[in-house]
Nucleic acid binder design. Structure first.
Length: 800
RNA sequence: GCGGGCGUGGCGGAAUUGGCAGACGCGCCAGACUUAGGAUCUGGUAUCUCCGAUGUGCAGGUUCAAUUCCUGUCGCCCGCACCA
């Protein structure tokens, strides 16, 4: 058969679509499989080979599951709100709606051209009214339950994008979108109280099957720590300074305190502080630095002593000085710390620089040289002296603190509440009305969706306000509560909003009464397998788990976790081994590969290039290798004759079914493909093959390269789609040969091999080796010390 | 700094309850077919002082047997980062 992929591929893509064979059925009696891939942001650049890799894994798994009789939901959609589209609209004057529609059309065409078995009847677009109505609905539910609130705080602000960013979007002090330096700015901000779900998000990890490093990253992100809150009395004023510490048992070693430059106590007692100007100068200096710069200055500690007020160590009664320093952050704990210079490196550096006492309370180090952060016996600590286990000493101290009303045990999280608004046009409008009398009032549910209004100018205002603020007809409204004139919230939601629940909408995408029907949610949830990039495992994955857990708590969804299993694919690097980027000119266009080699080759190569979870560089020559393989497969049609089995190939065929089946389940696509290649090499060597055997092989190949599989399947007279044909079964007994080649070692050195019956017992194996002249000569005149036989693998005779 | 991972031919990578290192593919070499070959086919391809020995970053250890386990060390990658 001539391998004419250019005509084969579009033909079968059309047949699949016409027959709707990949549409999931809402037949709850069938076993189900819900495979989810991260839906793309439809950028103008079109698809990237990385998208193909991200989807190909679950594509193969879904296709196999379908052939195994599962009712498979394998959907796709578009996460279409976002800044690139809006920026493009500002630049060109084309409406973001138009830009989005064009890009989605382009992506859809490209995805179809690769032959993915997505259910196109369930496509969603987060910017469509029918979709964002429910995004707003969930927001209102959160508002109703006190999880969405407004607060004035210092925020990460990108002066270039003119937008407030979450901590997650401003990592390293750079804007996640345009990479420019972010600055700190005081602003009214919407938050989602994700911190209230910190424990649930942490505990939920116990019950899900995520890759271990993904779980770990989530744990680190949540950053739970156990410790205690301690209230330090201040001398001169009637005030307690509250701190958080993970080592309350080192309280006897506290020789000073440090508060963040922005700590409110400075302003509150400004009249008592003699060097208030110096403190304000220091604070202003710190405000100029971004958080990034602050965290970069690890070497040299800076700070100012607060003159006029000091603290009292609640346990020793000693008066200790208070300093302000930017190594203490307002955003973590209470913005104040007790400093234990002997046992904390930062406190040690600070104490050395400012000449503060250092008191050892844990034995084991040399505090004249450096802080000792290890474990050891407690000393200089009164009732804690002699404790050697840190758990015990901490427990004892917390007991003491609580008994004397000085403090109490408590926990802290690194994770902060989620800044949930953007001053941008292309996002979901926040359905809230500001009324002078009633405060913040929710738009009534029956008025949803709150439509995004038409504007002429998409650019944000100079003051950083949303473009929506310029539209008076939108802003001015009546308070839903009291009916008086009121103003609408003009900020929109961040891009993460729509993707936080999209997997629920696929289950029932056209439902106008609910997110999805209850019985459908019960049947399809949880997502059985979710695959996506490592870059999303701390933000999107945590946000969407948070939303899901909230929806579970209010009875909307039936499972506490959205995803039963989560994996991540590795990057595809450029041919030069660098990360693909336009500026480096090493980007591979998947559609060009489809044009030149075919979609089947592209899919096969991307899964063959290496371990699915590892990064691997692109190699066009290897693409050609995959092409050659499929051409050889096409030629099998001329070799295959008759029915039944080819004796020489029977066990090879059963072994192959076993290998491919188990390798797909564990995402070891590269070795599954290697096994298929090896098998075909063997078939060509044997030179005979039956149609029955070819049909088995084609079904194994079908999830990887479905078009050629369909074509050859049809050529063999099959009337149904191979995509729906039953997955081949293997007979375990037939996966073993009657004889097996043992490696023969003398004293652990390989001396040759010997063919013996399979499962041959130890004595017979040893006897066979001794009977073989080439081994016998090596044993001549030696004393046998030990004889080791590993069944069907190795025979080792140890001699002296 | 803390946490996680990795290190195997010229290249991508196989091989783990410790059991024949280099599967499969690329590249390369030789040959066949050919006016031609950047097509196809056949054979070869870890290294060396090649009837033998050596070899999975480096140095040790455990074992009949180590890519796999242990100790030390070097190098690279990723995540978090003054988190109290």
């Amino acid at each position: 058969m001539k391998y004419d992929f250019k005509s084969i591929e579009p033909k079968w893509q059309k047949k699949w679509e016409d027959a709707k064979i990949f549409e999931a059925k809402d037949d709850f009696s069938l076993p189900k499989f819900y495979g989810l891939v991260e839906f793309p942001y439809p950028s103008g650049a079109g698809m990237h080979v990385g998208h193909i890799k991200a989807y190909s894994g679950l594509e193969v798994i879904s296709r196999k599951k379908r052939m195994q009789g599962y009712n498979v939901l394998f959907p796709i959609g578009f996460d279409a709100y976002g800044l690139p589209t809006e920026n493009y609209a500002i630049k060109t004057g084309i409406h973001p709606r138009q830009v989005t529609d064009n890009n989605i059309e382009k992506f859809s065409m490209q995805l179809r051209r690769v032959g993915f078995s997505f259910d196109w009847s369930r496509v969603i677009d987060t910017t469509e009214v029918d979709y964002y109505k429910w995004t707003q609905w969930i927001f209102l539910k959160m508002f109703e339950n006190g999880l969405a609130f407004r607060d004035k705080t210092l925020v990460n602000y990108c002066p270039s994008c003119k937008v407030v960013l979450s901590n997650e979007d401003s990592q390293g002090g750079k804007c996640d979108i345009c990479k420019s330096q972010i600055i700190q700015k005081s602003k009214d901000v919407w938050y989602l109280r994700i911190t209230e779900y910190a424990d649930k998000l942490l505990e939920g990890l116990e019950d899900v099957d995520y890759l271990p490093n993904i779980k770990l990253q989530q744990k680190n992100w949540i950053g739970k720590s156990q410790g205690a809150f301690v209230n330090f009395s201040l001398a001169c004023v009637d005030e307690k300074l509250r701190i958080y510490t993970t080592r309350p048992d080192t309280l006897f070693g506290v020789t000073f305190m440090v508060i963040a430059p922005e700590h409110p106590i400075i302003e509150k007692y400004a009249d008592k502080i003699s060097n208030i100007d110096a403190l304000n100068d220091y604070k202003n200096e710190c405000a100029k630095k971004t958080e990034f710069e602050r965290t970069q200055l690890v070497k040299e500690k800076t700070g100012v002593k607060i003159e006029g007020i000091s603290a009292i160590n609640p346990i020793t009664g000693k008066k200790i000085p208070i300093y302000t320093s930017d190594y203490v952050m307002m955003g973590y704990g209470t913005g104040a710390i007790m400093a234990v210079p002997a046992h904390d490196e930062r406190d040690y550096d600070f104490a050395k620089k400012f000449g503060i006492d250092i008191i050892e309370v844990i034995k084991g180090g040399n505090i004249a040289e450096a802080a000792y952060t290890g474990d050891g016996e407690m000393v200089n600590s009164d009732f804690l002296n002699g404790f050697t286990n840190k758990k015990d000493s901490i427990a004892k101290m917390i007991e003491h603190l609580e008994a004397n009303n000085i403090g109490e045990g408590g926990v802290q999280y690194k994770m902060k509440d989620w800044a949930f608004n953007r001053q941008r046009y292309w996002g979901e409008p926040i359905p809230i009305v500001h009324c002078d009398d009633c405060g913040m009032v929710a738009v009534p549910y029956e008025e949803l969706p709150l439509m995004l209004p038409e504007v002429k100018d998409f650019a944000p205002g100079e003051g950083g306000e949303s473009p929506l603020a310029k539209i008076e007809s939108y802003v001015n409204c009546k308070c839903p509560k009291c009916g008086k004139p009121a103003k609408r919230e003009t900020d929109t939601m961040p891009q993460w909003a729509g993707s936080s629940w999209y997997f629920l909408r696929y289950i029932d995408p056209h439902n106008s009464d609910a997110i999805a029907a209850e019985d459908k949610l019960r049947y399809w949830l949880p997502v059985d397998w979710y695959n996506g990039g490592m870059e999303h495992v701390t933000r999107h994955l945590i946000y969407s788990r948070f939303w899901h857990k909230f929806l579970y708590d209010i009875g909307v969804v039936p499972t506490s976790e959205p995803y039963a299993k989560r994996t991540a694919q590795g990057l595809i690097l450029g041919p030069d081994g660098d990360k693909m980027s336009k500026s480096k000119g090493n980007v591979v266009d998947p559609l060009e590969v489809v044009e030149t080699y075919g979609a089947d080759v592209l899919r096969l190569y991307i899964l063959f290039m290496g371990d699915y979870e590892q990064a691997a560089p692109w190699s066009e020559n290897s693409v050609k290798g995959c092409k050659r393989f499929l051409e050889r497969v096409a030629d099998l049609a001329t070799i295959a004759k008759g029915n039944g089995v080819t004796v020489k190939l029977e066990s090879a065929t059963h072994k192959l079914i076993k290998k491919v089946t188990s390798d797909i389940d564990s995402m070891k696509f590269n070795t599954a493909i290697a096994a298929m290649m090896g098998y075909i090499n063997e078939v060509l060597e044997v030179g005979e093959y039956t149609v029955d055997e070819l049909k088995i092989f084609l079904r194994l190949l079908a999830p990887f390269s479905p078009h050629i599989a369909e074509e050859m399947w049809a050529d063999l007279g099959e009337k149904e789609f191979i995509s729906l044909a039953p997955w081949p079964e293997y007979d375990e007994a037939k996966t073993v040969d009657s004889t097996v080649e043992f490696a023969v070692q003398i004293c652990g050195k390989l001396r040759g091999t010997i063919v013996l019956p399979v499962n041959c017992d130890k004595d017979a194996a040893i006897a066979a080796v001794k009977a073989e002249p080439k081994f016998a000569s090596l044993l001549d005149g030696k004393t046998i010390i030990k004889e080791i036989v590993v069944p069907n693998k190795i025979i080792n005779i140890v001699v002296r």
